[in-house]
């Protein structure tokens, strides 16, 4: 897969913490290519959706202001060890990536 996602979900007490690292250039569209002096076209993740038990736990809406190879962490309640958490992103060019991990 071209855009691997590193993802981890850990249960502590009753709270699950999900951490993910996506691989993406996150170009704002305002940066110039130093060699050609031309603007590098915008290319950034706009939406990251995290689901657990077919429920949307978190949906991130991003601009190009999020750093390259974006990192995200969030917490939610209600999950058990061994259950699966899914994460999927979509960027402004319509490209997408997804991953799933087991809660440990």
């Amino acid at each position: 897969m071209a855009n691997p996602i590193k993802m981890r979900a850990k249960l502590k007490g009753e709270v699950t913490e999900v951490k993910a690292l996506m691989s993406h250039p996150m170009e704002t569209g305002r940066r110039k290519d130093k060699a050609t002096e031309k603007l590098i076209p915008a290319h950034f993740i706009q939406e990251v959706v995290c689901t657990w038990q077919e429920k949307e736990v978190m949906k991130a809406l991003w601009s190009g202001g999020v750093s390259k190879n974006p990192y995200i962490a969030f917490r939610f309640k209600g999950a058990k060890k061994g259950e699966t958490v899914q994460l999927a992103w979509t960027d402004n060019k319509g490209e997408s990536g997804s991953a799933a991990t087991e809660i440990k």
Partner: peptide
């Protein structure tokens, strides 16, 4: 453009987010 990111939290999500911004 000052707005960098917004995280919509679903049921069960706690008030915690962490990320890296420019």
């Amino acid at each position: 453009t000052p707005l960098v990111a917004s995280f919509n939290l679903g049921a069960g999500a706690l008030g915690f987010v962490s990320t890296r911004i420019k």
